[in-house]
């Protein structure tokens, strides 16, 4: 009987938990390619690509949440700058990510060739650099 009670409690707890933390059916991260996550002060920044990084124009998505509550942050100004360190060049036509809803930022990243790239993601405060995170990417 005691075991049965424990089991019931466990089931209820599981159901309860899953109800509160289950991702919404439209959670975009299911479809995205996570490049990396960086935590700066209380902000957790995740960089995603819409598809696996490829030569040409790539749609990039950035998710920013405030820790520990994970509330969305919607006012960040980003600069994105892909470079190929081994050759010392970048690429033109990149579009800096801007907020488009619910803590998600959308931009474009241009890779002109396959190989090892470095994406410098810079948080700006007007014209001042707040912080830059480098995300290595292998373009295939």
């Amino acid at each position: 009987m005691k075991h049965l009670l424990q089991l019931l409690v466990a089931v209820l707890l599981t159901v309860g938990c899953s109800t509160t933390t289950e991702p919404t059916p439209t959670d975009p991260t299911d479809e995205l390619v996570l490049i990396g996550t960086d935590t700066v002060n209380t902000h957790e920044v995740s960089l995603y690509f819409e598809t696996a990084p490829h030569v040409g124009m790539n749609t990039v998505l950035i998710r920013v949440v405030q820790l520990p509550q994970k509330t969305t942050v919607e006012t960040v100004i980003w600069k994105i700058d892909p470079t190929m360190p081994s050759m010392g060049h970048g690429s033109p036509g990149n579009v800096h990510p801007v907020h488009h809803g619910n803590g998600w930022y959308r931009g474009t990243c241009n890779f002109t060739m396959t190989g090892d790239w470095d994406i410098a993601l810079t948080r700006m405060d007007h014209d001042t650099i707040v912080h830059t995170t480098h995300f290595p990417v292998v373009v295939k």
């Binding site: 490829h54 030569v55 040409g56 124009m57 690429s91 033109p92 036509g93 990149n94 241009n110 002109t112």
Partner: peptide, 10 residues
Amino acid sequence: QASREILAAY
């Protein structure tokens, strides 16, 4: 397509 996108960026 990728070549078009790259050239269009320039």
